[in-house]
Simulated assay, not measured.
Amino acid sequence: MTTSSPTRPTALVTGASSGLGEEMARLLAQRRIDLLLVARREDRLRALADELTAKYGIRAQVMALDLADPGAAAELARESEYRQLQIDFLINNAGFATYGDFADSDLGSQLDLLQVNITALTELTHRFLPGMLARGRGRVLNVASTAAFMPGPLMATYSASKAYVLSFSEALSEEVRGSGVYVTALCPGPVETGFQERANLQGSRLFSGPAQLTLLSAPEVARQGIEAMLRGDAVHVAGGLNKLQTLLPRLLPRSFMPRLIRGIQDTGNLPQGKKGRKA
């Protein structure tokens, strides 16, 4: 059995083996925050934990779990309790996308997406938020997306899942107002994390042409996310051009938005039933 440091807070980071999760773990370690790193790839988690422990003198623990498993969030909560870890920062970063026409997609992949992006995030928040409220301090950072602000043909389930994350986070932010606990939704646009390769989006105009102007690096988005969480912002959209993009649904007819987004996302060569996962 292990325990949290009596003098340092502990952050639980899901999807910590790569991309935003890995970069957020690095930033938290720099602030001398102990870590519980969660993802599917144990070898990468252990390498990261060893690196951050040696560099910053923190305690970094790992737990290899697939949050697509309906029992994973409960197992994570039980293991945290067994290790006597008091979670002060909950970073719900794990998530993945699918690409292609929904009717032609693999149903199992779509249900896994909803389990990871929505159900696991909701369950982990419900399991750890009460303890934060009882102590009168804590932070929850939920990674949403600029896709949360508009429908996303060819990524219909993903966009809908991120709309849930945004709405859920904004509602909780109001519920906990004045408690010493803060809930933040981070909404990045496309990020240089390898996400597009895993989601088979290489040919999408989301990652080429003028859209490249909105492409931010993972370290930069992670920095903005952690700073927004520490400030207690309810919502943070990473990137100035991305902020403007989120205004489009207010400026254009709602019926026009799905057609516009499809035009942006269509590669002209849609893979069927494939999925891209992170962490």
Rank of each mutant, 00 (worst) to 15 (best):
P130I: 11
P130C: 05
G131P: 10
G131K: 09
M132Q: 05
A134V: 09
G136R: 06
R137D: 07
R137N: 10
G138D: 09
V140I: 15
A144W: 11
A144K: 11
T146Q: 03
T146P: 10
T146A: 02
A148W: 12
F149M: 08
M150L: 15
G152M: 13
G152Q: 12
P153R: 02
P153E: 02
M155P: 00
M155F: 07
M155K: 12
A156K: 07
Y158D: 02
S159Y: 13
A160D: 00
K162V: 03
A163M: 03
S167W: 07
F168N: 04
F168D: 07
S169K: 11
L172K: 04
S173H: 15
E174H: 13
E174V: 14
V176P: 05
V176G: 07
G180I: 03
V181F: 10
V181C: 13
Y182D: 05
V183N: 02
T184E: 05
T184P: 02
L186H: 07
C187S: 11
C187N: 15
G189T: 08
V191W: 01
T193R: 09
G194R: 12
G194H: 11
F195S: 01
F195C: 00
Q196W: 15
A199Q: 06
N200H: 15
Q202K: 12
G203S: 08
S204V: 00
L206N: 09
G209L: 06
G209E: 05
Q212A: 08
T214P: 01
L215N: 05
L215S: 06
L216F: 13
L216H: 14
S217F: 12
A218I: 07
E220G: 00
R223M: 03
Q224C: 02
G225F: 10
G225A: 11
E227V: 13
M229N: 03
R231N: 12
H236T: 12
A238Y: 03
L241R: 11
L241I: 01
K243P: 05
Q245N: 14
L247P: 04
L248F: 11
L248S: 12
P253T: 04
P253I: 04
S255E: 14
S255M: 03
F256S: 15
I261A: 08
R262T: 11
R262K: 15
Q265W: 01
